[in-house]
Computed example of a mutant assay.
Amino acid sequence: MKKTKILGWSALALIFVAAFAMGFKAATEHNFDAGYEVGDMAADFSLKNVDGTMVSLSDFDSAKGFLVIFTCNTCPYAQAYEDRIIALDAKYKPQGVPVIAINPNNPSAKPGDSFAKMKERAAEKGFTFPYLFDEGQKIYPQYGATRTPHVFLLEKKDSGNMVKYIGAIDDNYQDASQVDEKFVENAVDAMLAGNEINPKTTKAIGCGIR
């Protein structure tokens, strides 16, 4: 009986040590791949658009900033936000803040997110903004995007593009008519007015990037 008790405590100790080690590893990996925070300067990129051209942030000479939105074809959350993303581009592109949409998914894992399917989706929905393919999945880890959709508002400055807001588009992915907090609109409006953005970060709700 005594021996069984000792073995039981030993097993528990081993489980605890293993769990701690796994937790430490996960925390370390998360920190390493955390991506940008508000106030960081975002590096430019060159990605293929659905029209076959290569697009970079530096192409937009007159832009005051950008709404870089990681999204895709297949995620129900991303699909629910497509019309709202189109509306954001229609509202803010004339004010100098265009939408730049990026598909971060690996088509080997998500065949519906292939470049060919991206072209079909963009034509079907009438996208008014670049819809770029993160081939090799090199850009989304730099940003720290984890979901589709995941928004990064950038403000163009002399030194580069500063991250001003990270997170969700609004607080109701299910029904645009029932939105209480328009996080992205509030953030862009504040940025353009030279006011403090509040909140600067929210939790992105959507499908995990694959």
Rank of each mutant, 00 (worst) to 15 (best):
K5D: 00
I6D: 06
L12D: 00
I15S: 13
V17C: 12
A18M: 11
E29L: 13
A42D: 07
K48V: 15
V50I: 15
S58V: 07
F60A: 05
A63K: 06
F66A: 01
L67W: 01
V68T: 05
C72L: 09
N73V: 13
Y81K: 12
E82Q: 09
A87D: 14
Q95L: 15
P98I: 00
D113V: 04
K119V: 13
E120T: 15
E124I: 01
G126I: 14
F127T: 06
P130A: 04
Q137M: 14
K138M: 11
Y140S: 12
V151C: 02
F152R: 01
F152Y: 07
L153V: 11
K156N: 04
K156L: 09
D158W: 00
S159I: 08
G160V: 03
M162G: 00
M162Q: 13
A168E: 09
I169V: 13
D170Y: 13
D170Q: 13
D171H: 14
D175A: 07
A176F: 09
K182Q: 15
E185Q: 15
N186A: 11
L192F: 08
L192Y: 00
G194Y: 07
I197F: 03
I197M: 09
N198G: 03
N198P: 02
I205A: 09
C207M: 07
G208V: 09
I209Y: 08
